[in-house]
């Protein structure tokens, strides 16, 4: 991923900044700038998610693309945010610890590296809530 392509989405990736439709109240993460329910009547504004939620489903990635190869094995999950939307993210725990329904919260972490000496990318992962 190019530096510009990553930088463009930094607020969203760093702080879970999504959007909210003021017309119907639906919240979006990943952010959408167009409400599929209200269409032209929608008024979409920024919304920062508090970042708590639970694991809906999960896997452990053992074979990854080059960008993530050094991190394997890692836990990947679909997380249902308490505020509504779902997203795909890593969960920082041992492979055998993750389960459906696990309570998690957002954490700012290094996501990956372009190469050994290339730029580092940061973003949101999730950690178990004790």
């Amino acid at each position: 991923m190019s530096v510009a392509r990553f930088w463009r989405k930094q607020p969203q990736r760093y702080n879970l900044e999504g959007t909210r439709c003021e017309t119907c109240g639906r919240r979006f993460f990943p952010p959408r700038t167009f409400c599929p329910d209200c269409r032209r009547d929608g008024k979409v504004v920024e919304h920062r998610f508090n970042g708590t939620g639970q694991v809906v489903t999960h896997t452990v990635i053992r074979t990854a693309s080059e960008q993530f190869d050094a991190q394997t094995p890692y836990v990947l999950a679909i997380v249902q945010l308490d505020e509504g939307p779902r997203l795909t993210a890593q969960v920082i725990c041992a492979p055998e610890e993750v389960y459906i329904g696990m309570q998690v919260k957002k954490a700012f972490r290094r996501i990956g590296a372009e190469s050994a000496s290339g730029p580092l990318y940061y973003g949101t992962k999730f950690v178990p809530v004790e």
């Binding site: 991923m1 990736r13 489903t57 999960h58 896997t59 990635i61 074979t63 990854a64 693309s65 993530f68 991190q71 890692y74 990947l76 999950a77 679909i78 997203l87 795909t88 993210a89 890593q90 996501i111 990956g112 990318y121 973003g123």
Partner: peptide, 13 residues
């Protein structure tokens, strides 16, 4: 993909 999802990983979920 940026979160680390592979194609097999998505079907695994």
């Amino acid at each position: 993909g940026f979160a680390g999802a592979t194609f097999p990983g998505l079907y695994a979920m």
